[in-house]
Design a protein around this nucleic acid. Structure first.
Lengths: 132, 132
DNA sequence: ATAACGTTTGTTATAATATAACATATTTGA
DNA sequence: TCAAATATGTTATATTATAACAAACGTTAT
Protein backbone atom coordinates (compact mmCIF):
# COMPACT_ATOMS: atom_id res chain seq x y z
CA UNK A 1 0.00 0.00 0.00
CA UNK A 2 1.31 3.41 -0.90
CA UNK A 3 2.09 5.80 1.86
CA UNK A 4 -0.80 8.15 1.53
CA UNK A 5 0.50 11.42 2.90
CA UNK A 6 4.15 11.50 3.82
CA UNK A 7 6.55 12.63 1.21
CA UNK A 8 10.11 11.42 1.08
CA UNK A 9 12.96 13.89 1.33
CA UNK A 10 13.47 14.29 -2.41
CA UNK A 11 9.78 14.38 -3.14
CA UNK A 12 9.35 17.18 -0.61
CA UNK A 13 12.23 19.18 -2.01
CA UNK A 14 10.88 18.93 -5.54
CA UNK A 15 7.32 19.69 -4.49
CA UNK A 16 8.44 22.77 -2.53
CA UNK A 17 10.15 24.23 -5.54
CA UNK A 18 7.21 23.60 -7.83
CA UNK A 19 4.78 25.08 -5.32
CA UNK A 20 6.86 28.21 -4.87
CA UNK A 21 7.24 28.77 -8.59
CA UNK A 22 5.06 31.31 -10.36
CA UNK A 23 4.82 29.22 -13.49
CA UNK A 24 5.44 25.74 -14.79
CA UNK A 25 8.90 24.32 -14.18
CA UNK A 26 10.92 22.01 -16.38
CA UNK A 27 12.65 18.98 -14.95
CA UNK A 28 16.16 20.23 -15.61
CA UNK A 29 15.46 23.65 -14.21
CA UNK A 30 14.29 21.94 -11.04
CA UNK A 31 17.49 19.93 -11.08
CA UNK A 32 19.68 23.02 -11.32
CA UNK A 33 17.76 24.54 -8.45
CA UNK A 34 18.32 21.66 -6.07
CA UNK A 35 21.94 20.83 -6.71
CA UNK A 36 22.86 22.76 -3.60
CA UNK A 37 20.66 20.34 -1.67
CA UNK A 38 22.65 17.37 -2.84
CA UNK A 39 20.48 16.17 -5.68
CA UNK A 40 22.72 15.64 -8.66
CA UNK A 41 21.04 13.47 -11.23
CA UNK A 42 18.00 13.77 -13.50
CA UNK A 43 16.77 10.37 -12.30
CA UNK A 44 16.25 11.75 -8.85
CA UNK A 45 14.10 14.53 -10.19
CA UNK A 46 12.11 12.35 -12.56
CA UNK A 47 11.44 9.79 -9.85
CA UNK A 48 10.12 12.42 -7.51
CA UNK A 49 8.03 13.95 -10.28
CA UNK A 50 6.51 10.58 -11.12
CA UNK A 51 5.45 9.95 -7.55
CA UNK A 52 4.11 13.46 -7.10
CA UNK A 53 2.03 13.06 -10.22
CA UNK A 54 0.70 9.70 -8.98
CA UNK A 55 -0.30 11.35 -5.74
CA UNK A 56 -1.98 14.21 -7.58
CA UNK A 57 0.28 16.81 -5.98
CA UNK A 58 1.50 18.09 -9.32
CA UNK A 59 0.47 17.89 -12.94
CA UNK A 60 2.45 17.68 -16.13
CA UNK A 61 1.66 20.19 -18.83
CA UNK A 62 2.14 17.91 -21.79
CA UNK A 63 2.46 20.58 -24.42
CA UNK A 64 5.30 22.19 -22.50
CA UNK A 65 7.04 19.28 -20.81
CA UNK A 66 6.72 21.20 -17.61
CA UNK A 67 5.20 20.72 -14.19
CA UNK A 68 2.84 22.73 -12.01
CA UNK A 69 1.54 22.26 -8.50
CA UNK A 70 -2.03 21.10 -8.18
CA UNK A 71 -4.22 23.93 -6.91
CA UNK A 72 -7.51 22.13 -6.82
CA UNK A 73 -8.07 20.35 -3.55
CA UNK A 74 -10.34 17.76 -5.11
CA UNK A 75 -7.97 16.10 -7.51
CA UNK A 76 -6.32 13.60 -5.21
CA UNK A 77 -5.68 11.50 -8.21
CA UNK A 78 -5.22 13.37 -11.47
CA UNK A 79 -7.83 11.87 -13.67
CA UNK A 80 -9.53 14.98 -14.90
CA UNK A 81 -7.26 17.90 -15.60
CA UNK A 82 -7.75 21.11 -17.52
CA UNK A 83 -5.43 24.04 -18.01
CA UNK A 84 -5.41 27.47 -19.49
CA UNK A 85 -2.10 28.34 -21.13
CA UNK A 86 -0.93 31.72 -22.35
CA UNK A 87 1.04 31.40 -25.56
CA UNK A 88 2.80 34.66 -24.93
CA UNK A 89 3.96 34.61 -21.30
CA UNK A 90 3.75 30.86 -20.75
CA UNK A 91 1.50 31.32 -17.75
CA UNK A 92 -0.50 28.23 -16.83
CA UNK A 93 -3.66 28.21 -14.81
CA UNK A 94 -5.44 25.09 -13.63
CA UNK A 95 -9.11 25.18 -14.48
CA UNK A 96 -11.43 23.73 -11.90
CA UNK A 97 -14.86 24.00 -13.31
CA UNK A 98 -17.30 21.43 -12.00
CA UNK A 99 -19.54 21.64 -15.03
CA UNK A 100 -16.70 21.18 -17.47
CA UNK A 101 -15.28 18.35 -15.46
CA UNK A 102 -18.62 16.56 -15.24
CA UNK A 103 -19.30 17.08 -18.91
CA UNK A 104 -15.99 15.55 -19.92
CA UNK A 105 -16.08 12.77 -17.35
CA UNK A 106 -19.44 11.76 -18.71
CA UNK A 107 -18.37 11.94 -22.31
CA UNK A 108 -18.39 8.60 -24.06
CA UNK A 109 -16.78 7.78 -27.31
CA UNK A 110 -19.01 6.36 -30.01
CA UNK A 111 -16.57 3.53 -30.53
CA UNK A 112 -17.29 2.22 -27.09
CA UNK A 113 -14.13 3.06 -25.28
CA UNK A 114 -14.65 3.87 -21.62
CA UNK A 115 -12.41 6.69 -20.48
CA UNK A 116 -10.53 6.63 -17.22
CA UNK A 117 -8.83 9.94 -17.48
CA UNK A 118 -8.51 13.05 -19.58
CA UNK A 119 -6.29 16.05 -19.98
CA UNK A 120 -7.42 19.26 -21.61
CA UNK A 121 -5.22 22.19 -22.57
CA UNK A 122 -6.62 25.52 -23.72
CA UNK A 123 -4.38 28.05 -25.44
CA UNK A 124 -4.72 31.77 -25.88
CA UNK A 125 -3.31 35.12 -24.82
CA UNK A 126 -3.88 36.07 -21.22
CA UNK A 127 -5.32 39.40 -20.09
CA UNK A 128 -1.98 40.74 -18.96
CA UNK A 129 -0.32 40.02 -22.28
CA UNK A 130 -3.17 41.52 -24.26
CA UNK A 131 -2.60 44.91 -22.67
CA UNK A 132 0.98 45.14 -23.91
CA UNK B 1 1.50 34.01 -48.49
CA UNK B 2 1.65 30.31 -47.74
CA UNK B 3 1.14 27.88 -50.55
CA UNK B 4 -2.26 26.58 -49.67
CA UNK B 5 -2.35 23.12 -51.16
CA UNK B 6 0.88 21.89 -52.66
CA UNK B 7 3.19 19.98 -50.45
CA UNK B 8 6.91 20.01 -50.95
CA UNK B 9 8.77 16.79 -51.62
CA UNK B 10 9.77 16.12 -48.03
CA UNK B 11 6.41 17.17 -46.68
CA UNK B 12 4.70 14.72 -49.02
CA UNK B 13 7.02 11.87 -48.06
CA UNK B 14 6.44 12.43 -44.36
CA UNK B 15 2.69 12.83 -44.77
CA UNK B 16 2.47 9.62 -46.82
CA UNK B 17 4.13 7.60 -44.08
CA UNK B 18 1.95 9.04 -41.36
CA UNK B 19 -1.19 8.45 -43.37
CA UNK B 20 -0.29 4.85 -44.06
CA UNK B 21 0.53 4.10 -40.45
CA UNK B 22 -1.97 2.30 -38.27
CA UNK B 23 -1.03 4.26 -35.20
CA UNK B 24 0.84 7.36 -34.11
CA UNK B 25 4.41 7.66 -35.35
CA UNK B 26 7.38 9.20 -33.60
CA UNK B 27 9.68 11.59 -35.39
CA UNK B 28 12.70 9.32 -35.31
CA UNK B 29 10.76 6.30 -36.46
CA UNK B 30 9.64 8.36 -39.44
CA UNK B 31 13.27 9.28 -40.00
CA UNK B 32 14.40 5.65 -40.05
CA UNK B 33 11.63 4.87 -42.51
CA UNK B 34 12.65 7.50 -45.03
CA UNK B 35 16.39 7.13 -45.04
CA UNK B 36 16.12 5.10 -48.21
CA UNK B 37 14.49 8.13 -49.80
CA UNK B 38 17.47 10.30 -49.08
CA UNK B 39 16.29 12.05 -45.95
CA UNK B 40 19.06 11.78 -43.41
CA UNK B 41 18.58 14.30 -40.66
CA UNK B 42 16.04 14.94 -37.90
CA UNK B 43 15.74 18.55 -38.98
CA UNK B 44 14.24 17.49 -42.25
CA UNK B 45 11.59 15.48 -40.46
CA UNK B 46 10.79 18.11 -37.86
CA UNK B 47 10.53 20.81 -40.49
CA UNK B 48 8.07 18.78 -42.49
CA UNK B 49 6.11 17.91 -39.35
CA UNK B 50 5.87 21.57 -38.35
CA UNK B 51 4.47 22.59 -41.70
CA UNK B 52 2.05 19.67 -41.83
CA UNK B 53 0.75 20.61 -38.41
CA UNK B 54 0.34 24.24 -39.49
CA UNK B 55 -1.66 23.06 -42.48
CA UNK B 56 -3.81 20.83 -40.29
CA UNK B 57 -2.75 17.70 -42.19
CA UNK B 58 -1.44 16.00 -39.06
CA UNK B 59 -1.73 16.40 -35.30
CA UNK B 60 0.74 15.92 -32.51
CA UNK B 61 -0.31 13.69 -29.65
CA UNK B 62 1.34 15.64 -26.89
CA UNK B 63 1.28 12.92 -24.28
CA UNK B 64 3.14 10.59 -26.62
CA UNK B 65 5.34 12.88 -28.65
CA UNK B 66 3.91 11.22 -31.70
CA UNK B 67 2.05 12.24 -34.82
CA UNK B 68 -1.15 11.11 -36.51
CA UNK B 69 -2.83 12.05 -39.76
CA UNK B 70 -5.87 14.25 -39.50
CA UNK B 71 -9.00 12.26 -40.28
CA UNK B 72 -11.54 15.00 -39.86
CA UNK B 73 -12.06 16.94 -43.05
CA UNK B 74 -13.16 20.05 -41.21
CA UNK B 75 -10.04 20.86 -39.28
CA UNK B 76 -8.11 22.80 -41.88
CA UNK B 77 -6.35 24.51 -39.07
CA UNK B 78 -5.93 22.50 -35.92
CA UNK B 79 -7.55 24.66 -33.34
CA UNK B 80 -9.89 22.17 -31.75
CA UNK B 81 -8.51 18.66 -31.38
CA UNK B 82 -9.62 15.70 -29.30
CA UNK B 83 -8.24 12.20 -29.14
CA UNK B 84 -9.02 8.88 -27.59
CA UNK B 85 -5.91 7.02 -26.52
CA UNK B 86 -5.63 3.40 -25.42
CA UNK B 87 -3.13 3.03 -22.61
CA UNK B 88 -2.58 -0.59 -23.46
CA UNK B 89 -2.07 -0.80 -27.23
CA UNK B 90 -1.26 2.87 -27.83
CA UNK B 91 -4.01 3.17 -30.39
CA UNK B 92 -5.10 6.75 -31.04
CA UNK B 93 -8.41 7.78 -32.48
CA UNK B 94 -9.33 11.30 -33.45
CA UNK B 95 -12.66 12.30 -31.98
CA UNK B 96 -14.83 14.46 -34.16
CA UNK B 97 -17.90 15.22 -32.17
CA UNK B 98 -19.61 18.44 -33.12
CA UNK B 99 -21.26 18.86 -29.75
CA UNK B 100 -18.05 18.36 -27.83
CA UNK B 101 -16.20 20.67 -30.13
CA UNK B 102 -18.83 23.37 -29.82
CA UNK B 103 -18.99 22.99 -26.08
CA UNK B 104 -15.26 23.43 -25.69
CA UNK B 105 -14.93 26.17 -28.28
CA UNK B 106 -17.56 28.11 -26.40
CA UNK B 107 -16.00 27.53 -23.03
CA UNK B 108 -14.74 30.67 -21.37
CA UNK B 109 -12.42 30.87 -18.45
CA UNK B 110 -13.62 32.83 -15.47
CA UNK B 111 -10.38 34.78 -15.45
CA UNK B 112 -11.26 36.31 -18.77
CA UNK B 113 -8.84 34.63 -21.07
CA UNK B 114 -10.19 34.11 -24.54
CA UNK B 115 -9.14 30.77 -25.98
CA UNK B 116 -7.89 30.37 -29.51
CA UNK B 117 -7.26 26.68 -29.46
CA UNK B 118 -7.55 23.56 -27.35
CA UNK B 119 -6.31 20.01 -27.26
CA UNK B 120 -8.07 17.25 -25.38
CA UNK B 121 -6.72 13.78 -24.75
CA UNK B 122 -8.86 10.99 -23.28
CA UNK B 123 -7.22 7.85 -21.90
CA UNK B 124 -8.60 4.39 -21.30
CA UNK B 125 -8.47 0.82 -22.50
CA UNK B 126 -9.90 0.18 -25.94
CA UNK B 127 -12.45 -2.53 -26.71
CA UNK B 128 -9.91 -4.79 -28.35
CA UNK B 129 -7.57 -4.69 -25.38
CA UNK B 130 -10.36 -5.31 -22.91
CA UNK B 131 -11.11 -8.68 -24.46
CA UNK B 132 -7.60 -9.99 -23.88
C1' DA C 1 14.73 36.60 -68.96
C1' DT C 2 16.36 38.01 -64.62
C1' DA C 3 16.59 40.00 -60.22
C1' DA C 4 14.57 39.77 -55.73
C1' DC C 5 12.21 37.38 -52.36
C1' DG C 6 10.45 33.72 -49.71
C1' DT C 7 10.52 28.84 -48.95
C1' DT C 8 12.59 24.47 -48.90
C1' DT C 9 16.54 21.61 -48.63
C1' DG C 10 20.86 19.64 -46.91
C1' DT C 11 24.12 19.31 -43.31
C1' DT C 12 26.76 19.33 -38.95
C1' DA C 13 26.48 20.01 -34.40
C1' DT C 14 24.36 20.29 -30.05
C1' DA C 15 20.63 21.11 -26.66
C1' DA C 16 16.89 19.41 -23.97
C1' DT C 17 14.14 15.72 -22.21
C1' DA C 18 13.84 11.13 -20.30
C1' DT C 19 14.99 6.26 -19.05
C1' DA C 20 17.98 1.90 -18.08
C1' DA C 21 20.39 -0.60 -14.94
C1' DC C 22 22.50 -1.65 -10.78
C1' DA C 23 24.07 -1.12 -5.96
C1' DT C 24 22.78 0.53 -1.50
C1' DA C 25 20.00 2.49 2.14
C1' DT C 26 15.78 3.44 4.54
C1' DT C 27 11.00 2.71 6.01
C1' DT C 28 7.10 -0.12 7.01
C1' DG C 29 4.51 -3.65 8.62
C1' DA C 30 3.81 -8.57 9.78
C1' DT D 1 13.48 -8.43 13.82
C1' DC D 2 13.16 -9.90 9.44
C1' DA D 3 11.19 -9.49 4.90
C1' DA D 4 9.19 -6.60 1.58
C1' DA D 5 8.53 -2.42 -0.43
C1' DT D 6 10.07 2.07 -1.21
C1' DA D 7 13.53 5.46 -1.85
C1' DT D 8 18.22 6.84 -2.89
C1' DG D 9 22.62 7.53 -5.37
C1' DT D 10 25.16 6.96 -9.48
C1' DT D 11 26.86 6.21 -14.20
C1' DA D 12 25.62 5.72 -18.62
C1' DT D 13 22.73 6.19 -22.48
C1' DA D 14 18.43 6.76 -25.17
C1' DT D 15 15.12 9.82 -27.08
C1' DT D 16 13.26 14.11 -28.61
C1' DA D 17 14.13 18.59 -30.56
C1' DT D 18 16.52 22.87 -32.12
C1' DA D 19 20.48 26.09 -33.75
C1' DA D 20 23.01 27.80 -37.34
C1' DC D 21 24.59 28.22 -41.92
C1' DA D 22 25.00 27.43 -46.94
C1' DA D 23 22.85 26.15 -51.14
C1' DA D 24 18.94 25.21 -54.27
C1' DC D 25 14.35 26.02 -55.82
C1' DG D 26 9.93 28.45 -56.94
C1' DT D 27 7.31 32.64 -57.68
C1' DT D 28 6.42 37.03 -59.10
C1' DA D 29 7.34 41.75 -60.74
C1' DT D 30 9.83 44.29 -63.71
Amino acid sequence: MARAQTLSRNQQIVLDIIEKAKGPLKAYSILFNVQKKGINAPQQIYRALDKLIEMGKIHKIESKNAFVACRSSDCEISKATAFSICESCEMVDEISDTKLSKYLSGFNHKKGMKFKRFNLEFFGICKKCKKD
